[in-house]
């Protein structure tokens, strides 16, 4: 029995993320966004379900593919578009751009374009919660490829030793850029986590926002009690690794794998609800884009601020 109010809330945010990224696709040829973008279209349910299952004061450390987490955490849309445009009213005044979105005021503490680099940051932030006797948690979001980095292993080990409240959240789209998992991984994530005494769960229904939310609530409860946890969510990246197009024509994957996911994708399946919400969300995006368009470009003085 589905909680209709929760479903609509999550659906609305997921649709906002998709429409924002579709707007980015539309704007991209204009060259107003002059930097790489990594779109999360297809993966929105993960960001939305996870952030709704967290408390607003929980902290998220994310990746270069984080428009979704930025919006789901409650980041200002106008400041995000201004950041993508590289304007002074962007959240980091254009110094961060799409790949390094950070909004500490809503708990998005950083995002990195070097795979796996933010994983240990969440462990350090979690220590600050433990020290202060707080029941907040730190979440590190990464792709399945990040688990191949040594720092993932190192971070799991130290989190287990220190018993700090970290949720390791793996967004598994099965791809590391253009490489499939079987050529990359000789291990199974759950068994690897278990070797450190860390519990884990894999959710196959990554399109299901309510299931993601429920899985996050359960995992977060364990983490809040002081046990690190690995939550793996299977998902699907519809677009190319970087850029605004599709990549099926390169032949490294087929559209069939994505089509199976699309047939379950509520943003596609529940077309009536999407259509009903769209006008309001598009107006919100229009306003954010207008804000970015009106914001001035930074200059030499801004280059030299916030540096030693």
């Amino acid at each position: 029995m589905k909680d209709e109010a929760t479903y609509r809330r999550l659906f609305r945010t997921a649709l906002l993320i998709r429409l924002v990224e579709e707007r980015i696709i539309a704007l991209y040829p204009s060259d107003r966004i002059q930097s790489p973008v990594h779109l999360s279209i297809g993966q929105e349910a993960v960001a939305v379900g996870v952030c709704d299952g967290l408390r607003p004061d929980d902290l998220v450390f994310a990746t270069y593919r984080s428009h979704g987490f930025y919006i789901a955490k409650g980041g200002r849309l106008d400041a995000m578009f201004a950041e993508l445009y590289g304007r002074t009213d962007g959240i980091s005044g254009g110094k961060a751009g799409s790949m390094h979105l950070t909004a500490p005021q809503v708990g998005l503490m950083g995002s990195s374009a070097v795979v796996a680099s933010t994983i240990p940051h969440a462990v350090g932030a979690a220590l600050s919660f433990k020290r202060r006797g707080s029941d907040r948690i730190a979440v590190t979001v990464f792709g399945d490829g990040a688990t191949e980095e040594g720092v993932y292993h190192e971070s799991l080990n130290f989190a287990a030793l220190m018993e700090v409240p970290v949720l390791f959240l793996c967004e598994d789209n099965g791809l590391a850029v253009h490489s499939h998992r079987p050529v990359r991984q000789a291990y199974r994530l759950a068994e690897h986590a278990a070797a450190f005494g860390i519990g884990s769960r894999r959710l196959e229904e990554g399109w299901d926002m309510l299931a993601v939310r429920e899985a996050t609530l359960q995992a977060a409860a364990k983490v809040r009690a002081g046990a690190p946890f690995v939550l793996e969510i299977a998902t699907s990246r519809y677009k190319e690794h970087v850029g605004v197009g599709e990549d099926f024509h390169f032949g490294y994957r087929t559209s069939a794998s994505v089509d199976a996911f699309k047939r379950r994708d509520p943003l596609i399946v529940d077309a009536a609800l999407a259509k009903a919400l769209e006008p309001e969300l598009e107006r919100e995006i229009d306003a954010a884009v207008a804000f970015a368009e009106a914001s001035p470009a930074p200059g030499r003085p801004e280059l030299l601020t916030d540096i030693i």
Binding site: P120, G124, S155
Partner: peptide
Amino acid sequence: DAMTGFGLGA
């Protein structure tokens, strides 16, 4: 590597 990132997070 992780211990430096841990320090940054803290």
